[in-house]
């Protein structure tokens, strides 16, 4: 399989703080990759670095062979929207939601390409099929939803456009075990073409479902953990 994302020697951090240390990572097209590690060991920073949300980074990030990384010291998030348009779908940690929009409008926000905007009706229907609890809440304000419902909206927003690479950060964070199980199941059953990286603290939720699981420790990759080490 061709290599979709190729990260070489990526370092990133916030202000003077360096969180990621020379990370190498390769993701092949169509792969499901799990990223495990404790709190504060750089999972979220890696996700943010891939979308240029950290305040600086160095090293090389190649998406489909085209360089999207680079040394920058200013303007976190300035190129994020452009990267999203190039085919990275993001469901960030803590659900970057729009509290004053209804669920439908919120999902429409995710349809940023022309085709997606034209066919947004069908796409929203498809999201509702994936997350049935959202259907009755179609016109409710997102700010009034529960944590699990927000997570579904956030992931649904990401799924409005076919991205080549999906980044899902901590899908189970702050959710009741039952709900997080449901969200994860829906996430695994998604009929998506692109590759997906899921950062997760709870290893049990990833077990047996990923193509690969990679551990992160203190801002460095700890190689392929594989399924054996997690049993």
């Amino acid at each position: 399989m061709p290599e979709l994302l190729e990260v070489q020697q990526l370092s990133a951090g916030y202000g003077p703080l360096r969180v990621l240390h020379e990370v190498d990572l390769t993701v092949r097209a169509g792969e499901r990759l799990g990223l495990v590690g404790l709190n504060g060991h750089g999972k979220t920073t890696l996700m943010r670095a891939l979308t240029h949300m950290t305040s600086w980074q160095q090293g090389s990030i190649k998406l489909d062979g085209a360089e999207i990384g680079g040394t920058r010291s200013l303007g976190a998030g300035r190129r994020t929207s452009g990267l999203v348009r190039r085919g990275i779908g993001v469901a960030p940690q803590g659900d970057a939601i729009f509290p004053g929009l209804s669920v439908r409008k919120h999902l429409e926000c995710g349809a940023h390409t022309k085709t997606a905007w034209r066919t947004r009706q069908e796409r929203i229907e498809r999201i509702f099929d994936i997350f049935p609890p959202l259907r009755p809440l179609e016109h409710a304000l997102v700010g009034k939803l529960s944590g699990g419902e927000r997570r579904m909206v956030s992931i649904g927003r990401m799924l409005m456009v076919e991205a080549r690479l999906y980044l899902v950060d901590e899908p189970s964070l702050g959710l009741a075990p039952k709900i997080s199980e449901r969200v994860m199941t829906a996430l695994w059953d998604l009929p998506v073409e692109g590759a997906m990286i899921i950062a997760e603290q709870n290893v049990a939720l990833l077990t047996g479902r990923c193509d690969r699981v990679i551990g992160m420790h203190a801002g460095r990759m700890r190689g392929d953990v594989g399924h054996v080490g997690l049993g």
């Binding site: 951090g13 003077p16 360096r18 600086w56 160095q58 040394t71 010291s73």
Partner: peptide
């Protein structure tokens, strides 16, 4: 400081180990 750090990082890309931010530190 930032520029010289960046330049140092670029110059030492083959052999350097210092990050731009680190090089200034």
């Amino acid at each position: 400081n930032r520029k010289s750090g960046e330049a140092r990082a670029r110059r030492t890309e083959k052999g350097g180990e210092a990050m731009p931010e680190e090089a200034t530190e």
